[in-house]
Nucleic acid binder design. Structure first.
Length: 429
DNA sequence: TCTGGGGTCCTAGGACCC
DNA sequence: TCTGGGGTCCTAGGACCC
């Protein structure tokens, strides 16, 4: 520990799946190897995962698929709809493997995890990193990169280089000062974890262009111009680990379900189906973390890319008592939607948001007599959740969600659910 | 024709109180 | 006519992340 109470002896690994969604697709369709492949966002909108061949074509992350489709085709490549069921399942498999390499595991996102490696001898780390990489590859088919250093932020930097330079064979241990300095000097500030567009611009204006310069910036400057988060970033670059490993994810404080539609939607009835469907999904998430929501918001957007009258608005309501009971939530949400809706607009997106979320056991006592948890409704909700978990989503669903669902998002190029649907299992020829 | 979705944390400023 | 100072809580919006 140093004088400000930070340890400079932690060892942290960041394991990051390479081009994760694309890699998932390639596991089950080897014909995609070597070709430009990208996975599109919901509604077949923008590119959210790109193979190296797509990156070589200089097509940026987040670019609209339709603008680049011709070029990709010309190079023998493909665009795929996103298959989140598949990616979620593959992610769980990867994380299961990583869990075998350290008791300290923080699942940071669908394709990234931090591992605490304290107690390992430094000279063994490189071999250990490679072992992690080989094992994940062998057991799941997913290629990953491993970065190891003194703090999460530095582990991110190490990972950045491990991924880009084939000489590192996918694993970089960055512990000695000389190596850290070299890496940081070559790294533009915008590539640092926690430095976004605004900070990037500001720092550049102040002649801080690379990570080494930020690491060595005067303390008064940092104090004055950066938030507490920015300050932590600088300390982390200096090798002081001050963003702890977070092994048990906290329950969500807000839950959002929103989607763009596959077409323009004007009719109230169709919007009611969509909102009802989103509430159903959001309430499932709520119950999965044993929570209830005290506040509900419904929002509606027109197409911001299209000329014509715009209407973006939200309606909200306190839920008293807080609840996670889908039928009550649908009822309230549809009332809010009817307040919100105006005829004559072409809507492109709707969504619902739960906030003021609390654990179901923490509902105040004076509200308890009307709590949904106390009566048969809780048993009904749990039963429906169980059926849908075992037999597939929407085996049991609410009539208000509709059957035709013409507004549903486009997923024209969807791959099969190889790992989660019996009928989509791969067959040998 | 076609441009995603889901989160967290921090700060500033206003309202309110004593 | 003069018109303090400190604290808390809440909210909206910004910034960032994947």
């Amino acid at each position: 520990m140093n004088k400000i109470g930070l340890t400079d002896q932690d060892i942290v690994a960041l394991v990051d799946c390479n081009n994760f969604y694309v890699s998932c697709e390639r596991v089950f369709d080897p014909s995609l190897e070597g070709k430009p492949v990208a996975v599109l966002s919901n509604n077949d909108g923008c590119l959210v995962s790109r193979s190296n061949e797509i990156k070589a074509l200089k097509i940026p992350m987040g670019a609209p698929g339709f603008k680049h489709e011709a070029l990709i085709r010309k190079h023998g490549g493909v665009l795929l709809s996103s298959n989140y069921t598949l990616y979620g399942d593959m992610s769980r498999r990867v994380m299961d493997v990583l869990g075998k390499f350290s008791p300290e595991l923080e699942i940071y996102s669908i394709d990234e995890a931090f591992l605490g490696l304290n107690g390992f001898r430094v000279r063994d780390l490189e071999a250990y990193g490679r072992k992690i990489r080989e094992t994940v590859r062998k057991w799941t088919g997913i290629p990953v990169s491993v970065g190891i250093s003194r703090s999460k932020t530095l582990a991110k930097v190490a990972n950045h280089y491990a991924k880009r330079y084939s000489g590192y064979c996918g694993c970089l241990v960055m512990l000695d000062d000389e190596r850290i300095q070299k890496a940081l000097e070559k790294l533009p500030v915008s590539e640092i974890w926690g430095i976004g567009r605004q900070y990037d611009k500001f720092l550049r204006q102040n002649k801080i262009a690379n990570a080494w310069q930020l690491r060595n910036a005067p303390e008064q400057f940092i104090d004055h111009y950066m938030t507490s988060v920015g300050h932590k970033t600088v300390l982390e670059l200096q090798g002081f680990s001050c963003i702890d490993l977070d092994e048990a994810p906290a329950p969500k404080k807000s839950i959002v379900v929103s989607r763009s539609f596959g077409k323009q939607v004007s009719e109230l009835e169709e919007l009611e189906e969509a909102v009802s469907t989103y509430i159903t999904r959001a309430a499932e998430k709520l119950r999965a973390q044993h929570s209830v929501a005290g506040h509900l918001m419904v929002f509606l957007n027109t197409n911001r890319f299209k000329e014509g009258p715009q209407y973006n608005n939200a309606a909200q309501m306190t839920l008293s008592p807080p609840t996670a009971y889908t039928p009550d939530l649908i009822k309230t949400a549809l009332e809010l939607l009817r307040d919100l809706w105006l005829p004559g607009f072409e809507f492109k997106k709707a969504g619902v948001m739960f906030s003021e979320i609390m654990h179901e056991d923490d509902v105040p006592l004076n509200l308890i007599e009307t709590n949904y948890l106390d009566d048969e409704r809780k048993a009904l909700a749990d039963t429906i959740d169980r059926i849908n978990r075992h037999c597939g989503r929407d085996t049991v669903f609410y009539a208000s969600s509709g059957i035709r669902q013409d507004w549903q998002m486009k997923r024209a190029r969807l791959s099969p659910s190889y790992t989660t649907r019996w009928s989509d299992l791969m067959k040998t020829k």
